Measured scan of single mutants.
Amino acid sequence: PAHPYDRLKTTSTDPVSDIDVTRREAYLSSEEFKEKFGMTKEAFYKLPKWKQNKFKMAVQLF
């Protein structure tokens, strides 16, 4: 299930529990994912792991 970005980011005051914290981005809706990352999930997962992590750090999901 998708969760709002505000509850997934590492600085959230009301974090979602029971998620894989190493894959926070996977819980974003497709729309919100595209808004935050500027690309689709499919394109994101084709990137090298280090680049994925760099993007995730930039949007507080790492």
Rank of each mutant, 00 (worst) to 15 (best):
F62A: 15
A2G: 10
Q52G: 00
E42W: 05
K9E: 08
D18V: 05
E32F: 08
V59E: 08
L28I: 03
F62T: 15
K49Y: 08
S12W: 03
T40S: 13
L8V: 09
P15C: 11
K49D: 09
E32K: 02
L47M: 12
S30D: 15
Q52P: 00
K34M: 15
S29A: 04
S17F: 14
L47T: 00
D18N: 13
V21D: 11
P48R: 00
A43R: 10
N53E: 13
L47H: 01
K41M: 10
P1R: 11
R23S: 09
P15Y: 03
F37P: 00
K34V: 13
V21A: 10
F55I: 11
G38R: 07
K41F: 07
W50F: 05
E25D: 04
F44M: 01
H3N: 06
E31K: 10
A26V: 10
I19R: 03
K56I: 05
K51T: 11
V16N: 02
K34N: 13
A26H: 08
T13C: 15
K46C: 14
Q52T: 01
K36N: 02
D18F: 05
P48K: 01
Y5K: 08
T10S: 06
T22F: 02
T13F: 07
D20Y: 01
G38Y: 05
L8K: 04
L61R: 06
D18K: 05
S29C: 10
N53Y: 09
L8M: 05
E31N: 07
V16K: 03
M57V: 11
L61V: 03
S29I: 02
F62L: 15
K9I: 10
F33I: 02
V59Q: 08
R7I: 11
R7W: 08
A58C: 15
E31Y: 11
G38D: 04
L61Y: 08
P4G: 09
A43M: 13
W50Y: 08
M57T: 07
F55Y: 13
D20E: 08
L28P: 04
K9F: 07
D14K: 06
R23F: 09
T13I: 12
G38N: 09
D6L: 00
L28N: 01
K51N: 05
A2W: 15
M39Q: 01
L61M: 14
E31G: 09
F44E: 00
I19M: 05
A26L: 07
K49I: 13
R7P: 08
R23G: 03
F33Y: 02
E31C: 10
K46D: 12
F55W: 12
F55Q: 06
F33T: 01
R24Q: 03
A43C: 12
S30F: 11
M57N: 08
L8Q: 03
A58E: 14
L61A: 09
W50P: 02
K56A: 02
A58H: 12
T40R: 01
K9L: 07
T22C: 14
K41S: 05
P1H: 12
H3Y: 15
N53H: 06
L8A: 06
F37L: 10
L28Y: 06
A2N: 15
V21Q: 12
Y45R: 07
D18Y: 07
S12I: 03
D20P: 04
G38K: 10
F33D: 01
E35N: 07
R23C: 14
D14V: 02
A43N: 11
F44K: 00
T13S: 11
K46L: 14
E31A: 12
F55V: 11
Y5D: 07
K51V: 14
R23D: 06
Q52E: 01
F33W: 01
H3A: 05
S29W: 04
K56M: 09
L8E: 04
K46G: 13
T13H: 11
F62W: 14
R24S: 06
T22I: 10
R24A: 06
Q60I: 07
V21T: 11
L47A: 01
S30T: 14
W50L: 02
A43L: 12
P1E: 12
E42G: 06
V21I: 13
P4T: 03
P4A: 10
I19E: 05
L61T: 01
R23L: 10
I19G: 05
V59A: 10
Q52I: 01
T40D: 14
K36D: 01
R23Q: 12
K46E: 11
A58T: 09
E35P: 01
D20M: 06
Y45I: 03
K41R: 10
P4V: 04
Y5Q: 10
Q60P: 12
L47K: 00
E32N: 05
D14S: 05
S12R: 03
E25C: 12
Q60M: 12
K49T: 11
R24H: 08
R24F: 10
S12F: 06
K51Y: 10
K46M: 14
L8D: 04
T13W: 07
A26M: 13
G38C: 15
D20A: 05
S12T: 08
P1V: 13
M57E: 13
P15K: 04
E42M: 10
A58F: 10
A58Y: 11
T22E: 08
Y45S: 06
S29D: 11
S12N: 03
I19N: 07
P15I: 07
T13R: 11
K36S: 02
R24T: 12
K9A: 05
F44P: 00
K36R: 09
K9Y: 03
M57K: 14
